[in-house]
């Protein structure tokens, strides 16, 4: 039996999977369903359950799964100790690792180490695809570290600014 917790946005799903012969059994947040599947092509799966047939497209890399159901897309992340849902905030309570979900160029750093910041305050601006995106503080706190400077080309999901919650360690 395999047990995984998947994170989708702010939602968490506890999933266990098992098999009885050719029949798979999946339990999602306590709901148990039998299913079978066929992989018809790389990334393309036919899933059958409760008399239904669904075609689902899946790709994945490093605990992150991209899914298309023929109407909606889902990005699921396997919950690990290190990163939580958005990838931006480490699981560690009260510490925000500000990352950009996409690669780009740092246009402006709005804070310096030691600065006190308010929830929602802008921390850093990253330009991507001719658009400027501002990343903000999740809570009141103190800037612990700034790891990027204006002009830097940055990758996705790399910490740029680290903020510690005000109350932490007091």
């Amino acid at each position: 039996m395999k047990e995984t917790t998947y994170v989708y946005g702010k939602e968490e799903y506890r999933v266990t999977s098992d098999s009885e012969g050719n029949i798979r059994i999946i339990t999602v947040n306590g709901k148990r369903v039998k299913f079978s599947y066929r992989k018809v092509q790389e990334h393309v799966f036919l899933v059958e359950f409760e008399g239904r047939k669904e075609t689902v497209y899946v790709a994945g890399e490093r605990g992150k799964f991209y899914v298309w159901t023929g109407k909606r897309g889902y990005i699921l992340e396997e919950k690990s100790e290190e990163y939580s849902a958005s990838g931006a905030v480490k699981k560690e309570e009260g510490v925000q690792y500000v990352t950009s979900p996409m690669p780009g160029k740092v246009v402006k750093v709005l804070v310096r180490p030691g600065d006190r910041v308010k929830e929602g305050q802008g921390l850093i601006i990253v330009e991507s695809m001719k658009m400027e995106n501002e990343f903000t503080a999740d809570f009141d706190g103190i800037v612990k570290e700034v790891k990027a400077s204006p002009g830097d080309q940055i990758d996705a999901d790399v910490p740029l600014v680290i903020v510690e919650a005000e109350s932490r360690g007091e």
């Binding site: 998947y6 999977s17 999946i26 369903v33 599947y37 689902v56 899946v58 699921l76």
Partner: peptide
């Protein structure tokens, strides 16, 4: 079926 397919994948 999203979870089913992810497990299958």
């Amino acid at each position: 079926h999203v979870f089913m397919a992810v497990e299958a994948f």
